[in-house]
């Protein structure tokens, strides 16, 4: 019986009669023109998300934030107090010394929370919102294979997260350079870096931040396939991230802290020193990749098996 193929019943069905069967169509019994690998194309999902207000607002804010910071710096009263923020407090002092420093400052202030929220939003909302609208079951009935649905959703969510990161940095760099000039990257932790070198460091910082945020992306995505409440997935991911950050402050936990997903989240600061300190970056990357793989693996495992009842 296995292997016997029968022409799909095409009698009268307009689509099948007209389109002719695709290569896999006859064997799988699919409608003409249907190929599992062609369902939910990346562009289609990208447009689905692009049309959403929350996508537009989040990306818009990424553009707006550097502008707000820039305007806020115009009110500089000239008070020079280094509130004891440690060696890296210099990032704040130097924020207005050049475009690169301004960008670095913008990243510095948004890395710990804003970007986490944005990434959690893109990755946590993507499946859960479809479930809450009820459109998820229609996608599955297309049928978009579940693994493919998740893959496309994840890739698009990650693409938007990356876009947000780049928009933030790009706008900050553009505005900062226009306002403060194309100056070397300065900090007290290292020698001054020439603009070209500084730009490379900045890109490396963005790259590492992106890797660290993969953990948030993984967590939010896992929650997203587990719940119908988009807010729950986004909020849950952010909440767990904050919890991890708090635990990381408790030195009594000792070596356990290194297993917290947030432990290496600030290791990108080491990329500013000369020579570049990559030890923690490497460890942080390992940690982030492990967590992201775990979360995504769980998400796929769960979603490809679960009953979609929403």
């Amino acid at each position: 019986m296995a292997g016997t193929t029968v022409e799909p019943g095409t009698g009268g069905a307009g689509g099948a009669a007209r389109g002719g069967s695709g290569p896999g169509g006859a064997a799988s019994g699919a409608a003409a023109g249907y190929r599992p690998s062609a369902t939910l194309p990346f562009v289609a999902e990208f447009r689905r998300q692009a049309s959403r207000r929350r996508t537009q607002l989040a990306l818009g804010f990424m553009v707006l934030l550097p502008l707000i910071i820039l305007i806020a710096f115009q009110f500089d009263s000239g008070d020079d107090d280094d509130n004891g923020r440690g060696e890296f407090g210099s990032l704040i002092e130097f924020a207005t010394t050049g475009g690169l420093n301004f960008t670095l400052f913008t990243i510095f202030v948004s890395a710990s929370f804003l970007l986490v929220v944005v990434v959690a939003l893109f990755c946590g909302d993507t499946v859960a919102s479809e479930a809450s609208w009820g459109s998820l079951r229609y996608l599955l009935a297309v049928p978009v294979p579940r693994a493919r649905l998740l893959t496309v959703k994840l890739v698009v969510a990650l693409a938007y997260s990356a876009l947000a990161l780049l928009l933030l940095a790009g706008t900050a760099l553009l505005l900062g350079t226009l306002r403060y000039g194309w100056e070397p990257l300065r900090s007290t932790v290292a020698a001054q870096l020439e603009p070209g070198e500084g730009l490379l460091r900045l890109l490396a910082v963005l790259g590492y931040l992106a890797v660290v945020l993969l953990v948030v992306a993984g967590l939010a995505f896992l929650l997203s396939v587990s719940t119908d409440a988009a807010l729950g997935a986004v909020g849950g991911a952010v909440l767990l991230w904050i919890l991890s950050s708090i635990l990381d402050q408790i030195t009594a936990l000792g070596v356990l802290r290194t297993f917290l997903p947030t432990h290496y989240s600030t290791a990108w600061l080491g990329l500013l020193s000369t020579p570049v300190q990559t030890d923690d970056v490497v460890r942080g990357t390992i940690s982030a990749v492990c967590y992201a793989t775990l979360f995504w693996g769980l998400a796929f495992w769960r979603f490809t098996r679960k009953d979609v009842v929403s």
């Binding site: 249907y34 609208w133 229609y138 009935a141 579940r146």
Partner: peptide
Amino acid sequence: PGSPVLSRIGALVEGPG
């Protein structure tokens, strides 16, 4: 779940989405 043959079925299940 996800059989390609589902593409020959049009469905309205549990209300619109």
